[in-house]
C-alpha cells in the first residue's frame, strides 16, 4: 500500500502537466482559428518561410 503514497502524486503530477500544456495552448491563441489550423497543415509554405527569414 505504501506504493500509493508516491504513485498517486506521480499520476496527478502527469495529469497536471498535461493540463498546464493545455492552458498554455489556449493562452497562446491556438484555439482562435480551428478551421484555419485544419487547412494550414496542408500548405506548402516551406519555401516562402525560407524567403521571408
Amino acid at each position: 500500500m505504501t506504493a500509493l503514497l508516491f504513485l498517486i502524486p506521480i499520476a496527478l503530477g502527469l495529469g497536471a502537466l498535461g493540463l498546464a500544456a493545455f492552458f498554455w495552448s489556449v493562452r497562446s491563441g491556438q484555439y482562435e482559428d480551428l478551421d484555419g489550423a485544419a487547412e494550414r497543415i496542408l500548405l506548402d509554405d516551406d519555401e516562402e518561410e525560407a524567403e521571408t527569414r
Binding site: 482559428d33 484555419g36 494550414r40 516562402e48
Partner: peptide, 24 residues
C-alpha cells in the same frame, strides 16, 4: 485562400506579417 492571401501580401514590399483567421 490562406496561401493566396498571405503569400500575395507578403510579396508586397514592406509588409511584415499577414495572418488570415479563416473562422472569422
Amino acid at each position: 485562400c490562406i496561401a493566396k492571401i498571405e503569400g500575395g501580401l507578403k510579396k508586397l514590399a514592406g509588409i511584415e506579417s499577414a495572418r488570415l483567421n479563416l473562422s472569422t
